[in-house]
């Protein structure tokens, strides 16, 4: 992630820390200094200026909000913010030159809207949000910005910590974490329609939420935000890329079916491919599946670039020469000797 979102400028002439945070730092000077000392033992390169900037730019406004909302909780929440700020600065996750700018963005934009929940379980919420954005930042298929936007939108509707965490999980699936699909579908049952609507990125809604979830469970390529009135056999996703371009494959892969998922191999490594309308993720695995059923078993036919299923037939010139074909009930996966991507074809 090269995007620079951070507004931190640690070395410029900085305003002193003020308000509730300044008061607490003053009151607990010895304790906080001890924590800085401890953290420095573990992270010798921890930069005081960077910590000061993070406290001033990120933590101070958050502590101020907590102080306004529940003054009696300011101390305990500040402890958590302080500890996490130190730890994350030590790991190079917060502060300038971070490789995870969305984490700072989450602290700046999402955490303020979660203040009423943060005072009830500070470490759980701040830590979970931070970890979630980190996880999303590490997954090329995911979009942390969408995740943050949707969660911020949902914040007024989040009544408790558990709901927030479930909402985060469902939204993570919707913003690219395809391997969370099955458990996230289960979690959908415990979220309100209003929250699901936000998680699915829907502006309008014609079906009930139960119906939408049922369709999504049956068809991984269904997008509730973009309901397609005209079903067609099409390439729904191109998954994977050459390792030199940020992908996982050293050589053009071959693909195999493994239940509802696919297994892809470049001859050196093997990967599990989870794909649906919202993303495609690869996870390293070991061994190869047994050759189970052929594509034709699921009604797919591929003849020199011409793909057909049921009443649909479409010509895909780029798939004229195939190196491997695999299918499950909804999706056909095709590879060619000339490409590092896996073409996923479905009717939607």
């Amino acid at each position: 992630m090269n995007t620079t979102i951070s507004a931190l400028h640690p070395v410029e002439a900085a305003k002193p820390i003020s308000g509730a945070l300044a008061r607490l730092l003053e009151q607990n000077r010895t304790r906080y200094n001890a924590r800085v000392g401890q953290t420095k033992k573990h992270f010798p390169r921890l930069d005081d200026a960077k910590v000061a900037a993070v406290l001033r730019e990120l933590v101070q406004p958050l502590v101020e909000l907590v102080d306004q909302y529940a003054a009696d909780k300011t101390g305990s929440v500040t402890d958590v913010y302080f500890d996490l700020a130190l730890e994350l600065c030590g790991r190079g996750i917060l502060g300038d030159s971070t490789r995870y700018p969305f984490i700072e963005f989450a602290w700046q934009t999402l955490l303020p809207s979660l203040t009423p929940l943060i005072v009830t379980a500070p470490r759980t919420i701040i830590g979970s949000i931070t970890n979630a954005v980190y996880t999303l930042s590490c997954e090329p298929s995911a979009n942390p910005m969408y995740w943050l936007t949707r969660l911020r939108q949902a914040a007024p509707l989040l009544s408790d910590v558990s709901t927030l965490l479930k909402m985060g999980q469902v939204t993570a699936w919707q913003t690219g974490m395809a391997h969370y699909r099955q458990p996230a579908l289960t979690l959908c049952q415990s979220l309100s329609p209003a929250l699901l609507k936000i998680a699915f990125g829907m502006s309008t809604q014609q079906l009930t939420m139960e119906q939408i979830v049922a369709i999504m469970a049956a068809n991984p390529w269904y997008q509730p935000a973009v309901p397609d009135a005209y079903p067609q056999l099409r390439i729904v996703k191109c998954a994977g890329a050459f390792r030199g371009f940020g992908g996982v494959f050293m050589a053009p892969p071959t693909v195999y079916a493994s239940g509802d998922t696919f297994v892809a191999s470049d001859g050196t490594s093997t990967w599990l491919l989870h794909a649906d309308a919202f993303g495609a993720t690869f996870h390293r695995t070991q061994g190869m599946p047994r050759a189970e059923s052929t594509a034709s078993a699921f009604g797919f036919k591929v003849i020199t670039g011409k793909v057909s299923k049921n009443q649909f037939t479409v010509d895909f010139p780029e798939l004229e020469t195939v190196s491997s074909i695999a299918a499950n009930a909804t999706t056909l996966a095709v590879t060619t000797p000339w490409s590092h991507t896996i073409s996923l074809i479905s009717v939607c």
Partner: peptide, 13 residues
Amino acid sequence: TAFDVADLYKGPV
């Protein structure tokens, strides 16, 4: 090969 959605909240913290 099953993935746990709770893994979302595992990270540096």
